[in-house]
Design a protein around this nucleic acid. Sequence first.
RNA 1: GGCGACAUAGCCAAGCGGUAAGGCACGGGACUGCAAAUCCCUGAUUCCCCGGUUCAAAUCCGGGUGUCGCCUCCA
Length: 480
Amino acid sequence: MSLRVYNTLSKKKEEFVVRDEGKVSMYVCGVTPYNYPHLGNARPFVVFDVVRRYLEYLGYETYHVQNFTDVDDKIIKRSQEEGKTAKEIADSYIKAYFEDMDRLGVKRAHFYPRVTDHIPEIIEMVKTLVEKGYAYELEGDVYYSVGKFPDYGKLSGRDLDELKAGARVEVDVRKRNPLDFALWKRAKEGEPAWDSPWGPGRPGWHIECSAMSLKYLKPGFDIHGGGSDLIFPHHENEIAQSEAYADGKQFVRYWLHNGFITIDQEKMSKSLGNFFTVREILAKYPPDAVRFFLISTHYRSPLDFSEERLEEAKRSLERFYTALDQLDKLPEVSDHAGQDHPLRLECRRVEERFKEAMNDDFNTALALGHLFEFVREINRNLQDLRQKNMEEEEGTIGALRAAKETLLRLGNVLGIFELRNKEMNKGDELEAKLIDLLIELRQEFRKKKDWATADRIRDGLKELGIVLEDSPEGTIWRRK
RNA sequence: GGCGACAUAGCCAAGCGGUAAGGCACGGGACUGCAAAUCCCUGAUUCCCCGGUUCAAAUCCGGGUGUCGCCUCCA
């Protein structure tokens, strides 16, 4: 069974066929760095990180490009307010973007082009569009003439006439069609500007992505992704510009869009003010829980945010972690031990199911379900281990070690387990030694059957977020 | 006003024509000094409502109701 992805362009799941065999070129619309990213902003980056990881798991070589829109109205406004240059604003929030996404385990794209580094390419593209008759100049501004592009509306499923009728946009009477959009904007006083054939100005909103994606990925690249609010007008306009520029050559093969994060069923957005920044959330919840939360629902569905959900995500992950910790303690045995153990079969089955789920338009929720079932199977075997004789034990241990490898490998396609250790290792050594000392003392009390004192230690530690678990092999502790 | 999406147990969430995955929470049991962790068992006669198609529908069609999104910067 092969990978199928939902293409916004066709509104259907399609078989995923790449342009260049064995390689996937992907472009994800990045941020305008004028603010700290909120959770809604982060969703596409986590989503497309999983997409990329899965493609790599399948054996594709990926080339992932993501832009920074480092000049635009909001950055300019912000820079004027703070008395800084646009570049200073952009630089500082780009830095913040990386800090936050790194913590969420988002792999770095291979390349992050910035608009301000691509002004010549953009000017060239606008110039060509004017020459080809798709764009016109108006007092230093250049507009794209949507009426010239017959396919306009094909991505968002809109009809030009309907759009005109329903347009709530303030109409600029100079434009030929109210929907014509700016490719180049004349500079106002005090704004960053570059020289162009139409006078000093800066790129319009949509042209950057076309210019940069075409430059680095060439027409007909495989995946273009972003939030579904970009479908119209941003991506619609990108298609219009890019396909007009490339003489009708297909711009993108697969358009992928993720659903929104909502709060109380309402879209999380800066303008509504109902947002939480990634760093606010990470101050209260571990990154793996946030990431788990983000992938526990299919990427195209809306996802309602709440602290309860994050708590739930945290508890769900515990299931994986307790199993993983048990598996870590297993002694080494020959790799071939337990070759015909039933658990080995489960390993193959879970991987098949995992692939089947992910092949169906990256169904991470289903994939996680399979992983949970697999964990139960692992725990069953772990429990059995105690009642086994030596010979059987070796086989079970061998199979369990293989299961651990499978679980870790599949989990990391989703990027969840690798985040855990980072956070867990944060505790300092002194703390660990003190806890060990308390456990030792408690052991003494337990021997003397002084349950009251023993329980006081356990309860006290629990208050501090340290959970003790007694087992025949001794007492272990973990953070709650 | 135009276009579109979604409605599945207490909560979250898969399934998209063959008789309801998984997680969290809850209850019972095993284990334990008691817990915790883990395992076992239990939970929707039913998938918003009403019709229809079909041997068979949560899944398809029609009509309602409700919620949300896009049409404006927006991930």
